[in-house]
Amino acid sequence: MADTVAGASPDPHAAGDDPSRRDFIHIAATTAAIGAVAGLAWPFIDQMNPAGDTLALASVEFDLTKVEQGQQVVLKWRGKPLFVRSRTGAEIAKAVKDDTASMRDPARDEDRHKPGKAEWLILVGTCTHLGCVPTFGGGDYGGWFCPCHGSHYDTSGRIRKGPAPTNLAVPEYAFLSDTKVKIG
């Protein structure tokens, strides 16, 4: 190529036929198009993620005197059920005794409640298997039983039998006073 052009008077139009210049234009245009599509794809994907107002969900405060000993109250928090359970002495003792038992997701009972507040177990009430709401007091371990596919949780909310992979989750919460907690 080069030698056929050598000596010829420079022709501005001939330059357009240079294959490397063509390739460059093709590559640049394709890259720009791919970049534009990729850049636009993200907003269209991300719009499905939780919106600002959903993220800004307020935390809830809860008055513990509403729960009788040995019972639980279920409240709604971030669209999910939340268990607030007042455990009996026997239930706590059973949970502590099982600390050493073999478990799928080993955890000690004392790490699942606030220090000195063993009575109060506050858990996210969605089964860690596929998200059903376990029923209070059921199952082989007296904690909760998930009716959907048969997961048994103990009185510490730990998974003991069935398909669920992990223990019932402990949400972020704090005691505001002896009878009041703030969750979230």
Partner: peptide, 28 residues
């Protein structure tokens, strides 16, 4: 709830996928 949670079984990305499908922290 159960069907969307199926995607939560995927390692690492599972939770982000379910949140993305729900557009929140639960089916709503």
């Amino acid at each position: 709830v159960v069907i969307t949670n199926l995607f939560g079984a995927l390692p690492i990305v599972g939770e982000s996928i379910t949140t993305w499908l729900w557009g929140g922290f639960a089916v709503d």
